[in-house]
Amino acid sequence: MNRQQRLKLYDIQLRAYTEGSIEQINDQWIFFDEETDEAAILDDNLQQEIEIFRLNRWKKGILVEPGKVCIGKEVLILRDHDLVRIRKHLIYSLERLLDGINDDAFFQFITTLNSLHFSINDCLYCYNHLSFLTDDHRKDGVNFMVFDNQEQICNVQHHFCYYEKTNDRFEFTLNTGKRLIIEKLIS
């Protein structure tokens, strides 16, 4: 699995975007979150990925300056009441953890989490013990993650041992008591 395939898995995650509409008020673009009705200044997302709904489809681009989105070589000018999606940022420690595990463990973790109706974007907390280990020869320990999909809570413990063999074990526990364990061992 290459970086492109990993990014594709990120793209298909549920709740990956905050959706809403925009309005220009007092020469500032304001984003109104569809779910929470909270208002935020759109300029806080300059140089970040944003999607605009035009001609019955989402167009992905970069907010290059207030009121302008660059989509490839085309520049779209924003209009009042445009529907907009802004990609949510992952918790930094979770992002580092996902970057640090091998492709098989990454794929198994994401697909199992998704099968339980959770997304990596539902992460409330991540303790990444792996990022504190400096010994390149042997790394072992446990990472902790908590996910909330608005209906259930899922706690994940990632037990890892990277020494002569690579061992990743993920223990998923839902607030309903349901438990699921997956393990990947590479010689």
Rank of each mutant, 00 (worst) to 15 (best):
L14Y: 10
Q5K: 15
D99F: 12
N128T: 07
Q13E: 06
K88H: 08
N175S: 07
L185R: 13
L78G: 09
V84H: 03
F106V: 03
W29V: 02
T112I: 01
Q47P: 03
Q150T: 15
Y125P: 02
D11N: 05
C161G: 12
E49A: 05
Y17S: 05
L7R: 12
I30E: 09
C161V: 11
G141C: 05
F32D: 11
H137E: 15
N155I: 06
C154W: 04
L116T: 03
I110G: 00
F107S: 09
D148H: 04
I101M: 10
W29M: 00
I101F: 10
I86C: 06
N149K: 02
Q24T: 05
N56L: 14
E151G: 09
C161N: 13
F160M: 08
L133V: 12
W58Q: 07
H81I: 14
E65C: 09
P66F: 03
L76D: 15
C123H: 02
N45M: 11
H117F: 11
I71H: 09
L63M: 07
D33Q: 00
F31H: 05
L78I: 11
E23K: 08
L55E: 15
S131Q: 14
Y17K: 04
R96F: 02
S131E: 10
H81V: 13
Y163S: 14
L63A: 02
F147Q: 02
F147A: 00
Y163N: 13
I50W: 10
I110Y: 00
E23P: 04
R85K: 15
F132L: 13
